[in-house]
């Protein structure tokens, strides 16, 4: 099928090198194809790392929010009149007591004034005086157990404290999901472009080589070569090219990601988590060249067989 030969030829004498029945190694389009596959692999790595980072962000942003609600007792009544801290305290206690008697509630927690002060300090400044001057809204966190009827609980709270606001984080969750969903779709789109481009370019390369080497293919047929014999060589050859391109591209892509996160890592940001790859994610990235190699091989195989069957 192919044999080991060191170098193509020297002064008209062939010297050992891996050689095929068709002069595939001499094709000028090979380097272009390798470059193209390498670029596709870089895009593939970026898309993969992007979706890894995305799911990491999503879990971080939404973790634990699903079964939680926050009840805010505002510092003013329905008419916008400021309430005193004592009245707010009364309402908060009423609501807390009510919640504790409800079924399917795992835990009720009231944020202390200190915690609330810490939350709003960025807006009001650190001064204790400011906190004394203004009434502070009360915040109560509720953990629902499975099967809790949050609508019913919301209604009961309304009965005892009409101004209380039950925030089930639905809109936040929806926003996060929509945002990450969009990015995920982009990542999937990029992956499809990468796949599609790989398949189209490999099929095109095979097709053009088969046209160029039509006479040689005919000769092989006349000598009694089975389609599978010819196909094996071409698919093996194309897999080699795809692997070469994909390995170059994958390592370039990984290097880019590592440098990128290293540069971004200097400024600590809580919202965008620091990006590190888990073991499984490393394996997925390193499997990318194999995957592209297999795609290339399959495409070459399919294209070759289809073309050969049209020959005599």
């Amino acid at each position: 099928m192919f044999r080991l030969k060191k170098r193509e030829s020297f002064l008209g004498v062939s010297v050992g090198k891996r050689q095929y029945d068709l002069p595939l190694n001499k094709d000028k389009g090979n380097n272009f194809l390798i470059l193209l596959i390498a670029l596709m692999s870089v895009m593939g790595v970026l898309a993969l790392c992007g979706s890894f980072a995305l799911s990491e962000m999503k879990t971080r942003w939404t973790s634990g929010l699903e079964n939680k609600a926050t009840i805010e007792i505002p510092a003013q009544d329905e008419n916008g009149v400021l309430l005193s801290n004592a009245i707010i305290e009364d309402i908060a206690i009423t609501v807390t007591d009510l919640l504790e008697t409800q079924p399917n509630i795992e835990n009720v927690e009231r944020l202390s004034d200190g915690e609330i002060a810490a939350l709003i300090s960025p807006w009001l400044g650190d001064s204790d005086k400011a906190l004394e001057q203004f009434p502070i809204p009360a915040l109560i966190t509720v953990h629902f157990a499975k099967g809790a009827d949050s609508d019913l609980i919301a209604e009961r709270i309304k009965n005892v404290a009409p101004t209380a606001i039950l925030d089930r984080h639905e809109s936040w969750l929806a926003d996060v999901l929509e945002f990450t969903g969009t990015l995920k779709a982009v990542a999937i789109g990029v992956t499809f472009i990468v796949l599609f481009t790989t398949i189209v370019s490999v099929a095109g390369a095979v097709q053009s080589r088969m046209a160029v080497y039509h006479e040689e293919l005919e000769l092989l047929h006349i000598m009694g070569a089975a389609d599978s014999y010819i196909t094996r060589q071409i698919q093996r050859y194309m897999m080699g090219i795809c692997l070469k391109g994909a390995v170059i591209g994958t390592f370039t892509g990984i290097t880019m990601v590592l440098i990128g996160t290293w540069l971004a890592g200097s400024g600590e940001s809580a919202l965008i988590p620091r990006f590190t790859l888990s073991g499984v994610q490393w394996i997925i990235l390193l499997l990318l060249p194999c995957f592209i190699g297999i795609i290339g091989m399959g495409t070459a195989r399919h294209t070759t067989l289809r073309n050969l069957r049209q020959m005599a």
């Binding site: 099928m1 044999r3 193509e8 030829s9 004498v13 062939s14 050689q19 029945d21 002069p23 190694n25 001499k26 006479e215 040689e216 000769l219 092989l220 000598m223 009694g224 070569a225 089975a226 014999y229």
Partner: peptide, 19 residues
């Protein structure tokens, strides 16, 4: 109709390899 990229030996060996 010899294959110009392979040696005389490999040209002659080709039918055997195919078989």
């Amino acid at each position: 109709r010899l294959l110009n990229h392979m040696s005389a030996f490999d040209n002659i060996a080709l039918p055997l390899r195919i078989m």
